[in-house]
Computed example of a mutant assay.
Amino acid sequence: MSTLTTSDLRGFIAVAEIGHLTESAAALGIPQPTLTRRVRRVEEAVGADLFDRVGRRLVLNGRGRAYLPHARAGLRELAEGRTKVARLMDPERGTVRLDFMHSLGTWMVPDLLRDYRALHPHVDVQLHQGAARVLIDRVLADAADIALVGPRPGESVGADAVLAWDELELQRLALAVPEGHRLAGEGPVSLREAVEEPFIGMLPGYGTRMLLDRLTGELGFSPHLVFESMELTTVAGLVSAGLGVALLPLDDPYLAPRSIVLRPLDPPAHRELGMVWRAGAQEAPPVDQFRRFVMGR
């Protein structure tokens, strides 16, 4: 079977519309024998003659009329594909697929996007919000270019790391307790002192829940969870209502807990917030530009 090119399809369409080889060749700016070969390749590819000769003109027959709309549609699709690829390669008009955790949607992400769009207003940033573990898996599956997550994923550690990591924030972790609680004192506190307490936590797979599970596991206990949420603000609110204690970051600028006491953990523990992307990936220019912008802040 003949391999068709866009030039072959353009030649066929020109003859179909003009109806004369010489005039069609002149319109395309090519010699008539070249156009004849292009039309012949189209006919060989579809396995049938597509024109009838009427005097000195070439007129589409039934087979040609059936094929013509598909030839036009094929050229349109190829042109649209080239346009989309060109946009992806244009750092000022391409696309960045950015994922982020729920807790970063109130401060980090808006701040980044506000400043970035002031410099690059035509870049298309496609956003997705979710649990840290889900976002990491999306980057690994190439469903996202970049994810803002915490804590640092294991896939970004070591010589065989499949993810790259850049730390953006380091927040000290605290035990959050209601005012008047027996642990509502001052200064650092060990998480071990809350072994018997009911906990308010994030859902499995969320960053702060991953930290809670790791820290309590290191101390040899599993927290008794009485409620699991997708939002740190909900966790803080339920602690203030006296439903339990929680693990919360000290330095989240938009958490603003009320009627609760935040005691830093002893020994100190931190919530790492950072950016992950596929290690060694050939990033499109818009993605690379956005990543360098974030790293440079």
Rank of each mutant, 00 (worst) to 15 (best):
225 L>M: 12
143 A>T: 04
215 L>C: 12
174 A>H: 03
177 V>D: 00
175 L>E: 10
131 A>R: 04
141 A>P: 05
236 A>M: 09
222 S>A: 15
147 A>C: 09
180 G>L: 07
202 M>L: 07
228 E>Y: 06
159 A>H: 10
183 L>Q: 02
144 A>M: 06
220 G>I: 14
198 P>A: 07
184 A>T: 05
145 D>P: 03
185 G>K: 07
190 S>E: 13
227 F>G: 10
144 A>Q: 02
153 P>R: 01
147 A>D: 06
134 V>K: 14
137 D>T: 09
228 E>R: 09
138 R>T: 04
216 T>E: 10
174 A>C: 15
171 Q>N: 13
195 V>Y: 05
167 E>Q: 15
226 V>D: 14
182 R>W: 09
170 L>T: 06
152 R>D: 00
214 R>E: 15
220 G>S: 08
141 A>N: 11
162 V>T: 12
131 A>W: 00
183 L>F: 07
204 P>L: 04
193 E>M: 13
149 V>N: 01
200 I>H: 02
169 E>Y: 05
227 F>N: 01
206 Y>M: 03
209 R>I: 01
213 D>A: 13
204 P>Q: 09
156 S>H: 09
142 D>H: 14
169 E>R: 11
137 D>F: 05
208 T>L: 14
226 V>L: 10
209 R>T: 03
144 A>K: 08
164 A>W: 06
158 G>Y: 01
192 R>P: 01
231 E>T: 04
199 F>G: 01
137 D>W: 00
153 P>S: 04
219 L>V: 11
194 A>L: 02
190 S>Q: 10
213 D>V: 10
141 A>Q: 14
152 R>M: 15
223 P>M: 04
225 L>W: 07
209 R>N: 13
176 A>T: 02
194 A>E: 00
182 R>L: 12
218 E>T: 09
218 E>P: 13
220 G>W: 10
199 F>N: 03
145 D>N: 11
234 T>D: 13
218 E>H: 07
236 A>H: 02
237 G>E: 08
144 A>Y: 12
213 D>S: 13
231 E>S: 13
195 V>F: 12
194 A>R: 02
173 L>F: 03
238 L>A: 11
186 E>S: 15
229 S>Y: 07
234 T>H: 08
208 T>S: 13
148 L>I: 11
181 H>V: 02
169 E>T: 00
184 A>K: 09
165 W>M: 05
159 A>R: 06
148 L>V: 12
216 T>M: 05
179 E>I: 06
180 G>I: 08
139 V>L: 11
150 G>H: 07
149 V>A: 04
207 G>N: 00
160 D>F: 13
133 R>C: 05
199 F>P: 06
182 R>D: 11
205 G>L: 00
131 A>N: 01
230 M>Y: 10
235 V>G: 00
175 L>R: 02
140 L>S: 06
202 M>Y: 00
183 L>Y: 07
231 E>P: 03
188 P>G: 14
211 L>K: 07
186 E>R: 12
196 E>F: 13
169 E>H: 15
238 L>P: 01
194 A>M: 02
176 A>Q: 10
232 L>D: 09
212 L>W: 04
173 L>Y: 04
131 A>H: 03
193 E>L: 15
191 L>N: 10
143 A>R: 15
198 P>N: 08
211 L>E: 07
153 P>N: 02
230 M>H: 14
138 R>V: 00
142 D>K: 15
168 L>T: 06
197 E>R: 06
